[in-house]
Structures are given as structure tokens and as C-alpha cells.
Nucleic acid binder design. Sequence first.
DNA 1: ATACAAAATAGGAATAGATATCATTATTAT
DNA 2: ATAATAATGATATCTATTCCTATTTTGTAT
Lengths: 133, 133
Amino acid sequence: MGTIKRSKQREAIKTFLYSRHDHPTAEVVYNNVIKDFPKISLGTVYRNLSFLVDQGEAITVPCEDGSVHFDGRITPHYHFQCTKCGRIHDIDLDDPVYESEVISAPQKKLEDGSVITGHVTFFYGLCGECTGN
Amino acid sequence: MGTIKRSKQREAIKTFLYSRHDHPTAEVVYNNVIKDFPKISLGTVYRNLSFLVDQGEAITVPCEDGSVHFDGRITPHYHFQCTKCGRIHDIDLDDPVYESEVISAPQKKLEDGSVITGHVTFFYGLCGECTGN
DNA sequence: ATACAAAATAGGAATAGATATCATTATTAT
DNA sequence: ATAATAATGATATCTATTCCTATTTTGTAT
């Protein structure tokens, strides 16, 4: 009961996600995996992306604009969305921005008894390409 | 051209939003305003909430779970969502959590030329009522 | 190898949240 | 009071995601 079986589709989805560092959406994953699996359905992509997240093999990146992106990099790191092109970029742990702007949040108790157990910080701005040229 | 005309519905929406500090969703606003305006449509509620946001008279609170809440409090402050009951609470500026965990983000340049212009921090945990009892 | 049970898929329908359209109504300047 | 036009209500549409069911694939036991 509850034994997980592998599937070519799931492996292709995982391989694709891990090969990219640009935080694709479910639809982008679908548009790429379909090249090797012409009959794959969008439902399968969603099901497997959720599966990977449940297994701790991927994370979701919910953005300010409401779109949901997926990330195969599961070690803690921050994200940054370009307000011009919409792409999501990583902010490395050793980047000065990370260290100076945000401090990891330990548990903290508010006056009313609320307990803060974590936080999500999402940066925005303009990426190199959109400021650059 | 482009002159704004007032409407009873818009005023009711604004009044309702300002009367509450629990960050209602568009649907919650609709379910309440409809008591005074039985024929109001959901589209009108969405249209006017967006209008208030555009006018700087309200802000949106996009949550990690994808839901969008509205807030009539426009002075800078942080939010905190209870992972158990889902309610959104304010974190006051003078609360220790605010001061110790997050530092306001000035413009910052990364190695690749990206410029960080802002950030959003969203806290989560358990609210007083959900830890309390 | 073969058969069986469970898990996973494909395809499509269903849902939810949000937007857009458009004829009608309400508000405001004159 | 009238004309111009902004705003509404009702409905249609859109997008992202989930759900359903018959079929296929996979792992295991024989």
C-alpha cells in the first residue's frame, strides 16, 4: 500500500526541472517535456510537480503577480523577480543583499500570544539584462 | 475626460474595507456589501477594489497560498498569516519582530548588474487564538 | 516468462478566481 | 433639464488548477 512506482514522465519532468535554473512554471515544464512525450497531459505535469514538492525534491515560488513557479533547488535561498521581464532569479546566500537585508527569523512571540515560525522574503527590481543594455 | 464620478457602491466598499482590520478577500467584501446593495455584482467589487488600490487608498496582500486579500491600512506594515486558521494579522511597526527581523531594503546592485528596488516579507506562524486555547 | 494488483497516465470535464464585455443606469457639469 | 460619460449589473470569458475515469504501466509474486 502506498508504494511509489516510477514513471518515465515523472523522471522527464524532474530531469527537466533540475536542468533549468530559471524557475519554470507548470506550463513551461509542459511545453518542454511534451517534446519527448507528445501525449503527456498537463494534469500529469501538475500532479508530478506537486509530487516532487511533497517529496521535498522541489519547491514552489509563489510570486507577487500571482503566478506560481517551480524550483529544483531546494537549499535555502531567496528569489528576485524582474518587474520588467517577469523572470525569477536566484539571490545567492553569499550575496551582500542577502546578508545585509534579511536576517533569518527565529521563533518569536508577539504580545497576543502569536508565534512567528518563519517568513518568506521576495525581492523585486530590474535584472541585469533589463537594466544593462 | 477621465473625471471620476462617485457611486454609492464604491463608497460602501471603501467604508466596509476601512471598518475591518482582518484583511478581507474580494469575496468577503462582496458577501458583506451585498447586505446593503442586494443587486451589486462581484465585478463591481473587483473593479472598485482595484480602483482603490490604483488610487493608493488600499493595498493588496498577496499570500503564499495564492489568495489575495485587501487592506485599507496603507501605512507601511507587515503581515502574518496563521498556518492553521488562514487569517491574516498585522504586525505593528513597533513590534520587536519587525525591528529585529527585517531591515528596510535600500537600492542595491548585484554582481550581474541587477538592481533590487524593493522586497516583500511575509511572516507565517500561529495566531494567538490558535496557539492560545 | 506470466499474471495480478496497485499506481500512474491521458484526456477531458469541472471548478474557482478573476476579468472583460456591453447595454442600461446614475452622476455631474453646464 | 439636458447631454456627456462614468459606473453598474449581468453575463460571458479566461486562466490555472483539480478532478474523474478508462486505459496503460510498473513492481511483485508465481
